[in-house]
């Protein structure tokens, strides 16, 4: 049995969820084939071997420099043809979900997006995935071979890289010529400033209406820096324009499952809970003892966040010895 795993990277920078997905594929007791598509990404292919791939298809060509559906789907069709896998597994990152859907439809295959778990039982792929915005879990049997599944970031454990692992790299070039690709990328503006990304974060410090303004996020950012955490927000804070939408956690924002979620000045509306309920440990800092967030929290501090957050930062700085 073969499982094909697509590796998500941006200009050679690999999304950690890719390795989690590769690790999951290795656990499925099958031969694991990674697919790396990009320009000058030999290094990513080598990394994939260190993380457990037995074989890597490397589509390296200028047509793959930017993520575009047409050339990427064509490359995947090529791999599937050659490998006849039972399962094509994608990290459930933004690109991973996009590509898995475009590819699955093109190949007329069953898709289970954003799965928490995937198994192969008697030759059939079964995935468990949240539906109804996290309010229900569906067990999905995929009736096609291969099956296409995307795996939610942080649903599987991060494997250890092993530099002694060996594997084959199969080099491939462009399947579609540039002239045959209708979409053209004409610009890119980096907005990410080395912040920890919400979906990959082990720790998230999140702020709501209680932070009272854009400057109210400063103490939270400070704490996040000391903890190596990402900064999240409720929709109320985003709608007020205090912080960009990409920080929003919840039903119409991101779904996260960090080890620790620290909610500061967030009441815990059902739509917010939908995005963070799965966190391992939830800490709530809120002035109102009756705030619903305390019903789903493991630890609560009933107090002014503007007193507690700086005290936490100070104390964490001492103990963790970080700037």
């Amino acid at each position: 049995m073969t499982v094909v795993v697509w590796v998500d990277h941006h200009r050679g920078q690999v999304q950690p969820a890719s390795w989690e997905t590769l690790g999951k594929a290795c656990d499925l007791d099958s031969s694991v084939v990674a697919v790396v598509i990009g320009q000058d990404v030999q290094g990513v292919a080598e990394e994939a071997i260190r993380y457990g791939a037995g074989k890597v298809y490397l589509y390296d060509d200028p047509v793959y420099a930017d993520f575009r559906f047409e050339p990427y789907v064509a490359a995947l069709m090529d791999v599937i043809q050659a490998e006849q896998p039972v399962l094509a597994l994608f990290p459930g990152t933004t690109r991973g979900r996009d590509l898995s859907a475009a590819f699955a439809c093109r190949a007329d295959l069953g898709l289970a997006p954003d799965a928490q778990d995937v198994q192969i039982a008697e030759g059939k792929v079964v995935a468990r995935r949240p539906v109804y915005s996290g309010n229900m879990i569906a067990e999905v049997v995929v009736e096609t071979t291969p099956a296409v599944v995307s795996l939610r970031p942080r649903a599987a454990t991060m494997p250890e890289a092993d530099p002694s692992r060996q594997g084959d790299i199969v080099r491939k070039g462009a399947i579609l010529a540039e002239e045959a690709i209708p979409t053209k990328v004409v610009g890119f503006e980096q907005t990410e400033t080395g912040e920890v990304s919400l979906t990959d974060a082990r720790i998230i410090v999140s702020g709501g209406r209680g932070v009272k303004g854009p400057e109210g996020f400063e103490p939270l950012r400070e704490l996040a820096r000391v903890l190596g955490a990402a900064v999240g927000a409720s929709r109320a804070a985003v709608d007020a324009g205090w912080i960009p939408y990409k920080h929003q956690v919840g039903q119409t924002g991101k779904t996260v499952r960090p080890d620790v979620y620290i909610a500061c000045g967030i009441s815990g509306a059902i739509q917010h809970q939908a995005g963070m309920r799965e966190s391992k440990i939830i800490v709530a800092i809120n002035k109102d003892p009756d705030a619903p967030i305390f019903q789903i929290a493991d630890y609560g501090i009933v107090d002014d966040l503007f007193k507690i957050v700086p005290a936490l930062t100070e104390e964490a700085r001492k103990r963790l010895g970080r700037a």
């Binding site: 007329d108 295959l109 069953g110 898709l111 289970a112 079964v126 949240p130 539906v131 996290g134 309010n135 229900m136 879990i137 569906a138 067990e139 999905v140 049997v141 995929v142 009736e143 096609t144 309920r277 799965e278 939830i282 709530a284 003892p289 305390f294 019903q295 789903i296 929290a297 493991d298 630890y299 609560g300 501090i301 009933v302």
Partner: peptide
């Protein structure tokens, strides 16, 4: 191409808040 076989409510993680 896919079948939803079971649907369940996620077992809410048992959380007991420590204030």
């Amino acid at each position: 191409r896919v079948r939803w076989t079971h649907l369940v409510k996620p077992e809410p993680k048992k959380r007991q808040v420590t204030i």
